[in-house]
Amino acid sequence: MAVINIRKKEVQIKIVYVGPGRGGKTTNLEYLFSSIRHRIQSDMVSIKTHGDRTLFFDFLPFDLGTIQGYRIKTQLYTVPGQVKYNATRKLVLKGVDGVVFVADSMAVMREKNIQSLENLRENLAFYDLDMYKFPIVLQYNKRDLNSPDIPILDVATLQQDLNAKLKAPYFEASALRGDNVIATVKKIISETIVSIQEHLA
């Protein structure tokens, strides 16, 4: 749950990017960081393995400014996507306020997307959070890969696989090119703040 300091009029929100390994979670954060680094004081922290895979998490904190008199401090995290790092994923999800699920559009990743979403549901349930009533935005990444060599899933299939029950906002994106990366983060921040406000009301 968000950290709210009434005296300082400050709200700290935690948004976590989840999804299958190599799906583009870190690339999302890197693109965001390169877009906003000239106006934020903080740095992006990444803990990677030798093969440049996310071992623990990436962390990008920034001060969004003031909304309705409250200063909004945002923390973006990614989790390692590889199946074996579930304990880390669970740990990073502790206290999460909003989730961006980065699905890999490559056809070969179809099963991994579904498994990863199911894993997210389980991990949220561990903290008594219902994924279906939780601020979540889906991002169908790697839309730029569409070529005969690399078949990608069409959006209808992705929607059917991942969003049929969730009915969450979704974006077609290319984290590498930056397409819809900012739109995704704007949407999740917005959804998260509204959700926090609703809980408080």
Binding site: L64, I67, I72, S190, Q197, E198
Partner: peptide, 26 residues
């Protein structure tokens, strides 16, 4: 939270986000 307050909040958030992410570097 009534509907008008929710709309106002959503609009405030949107404006702030537009300001924050809007200015691009050369």
């Amino acid at each position: 939270m009534d509907k008008s307050a929710k709309t106002k909040l959503a609009s405030d958030i949107e404006n702030r986000l537009d300001d924050f992410f809007g200015e691009q570097r050369p």
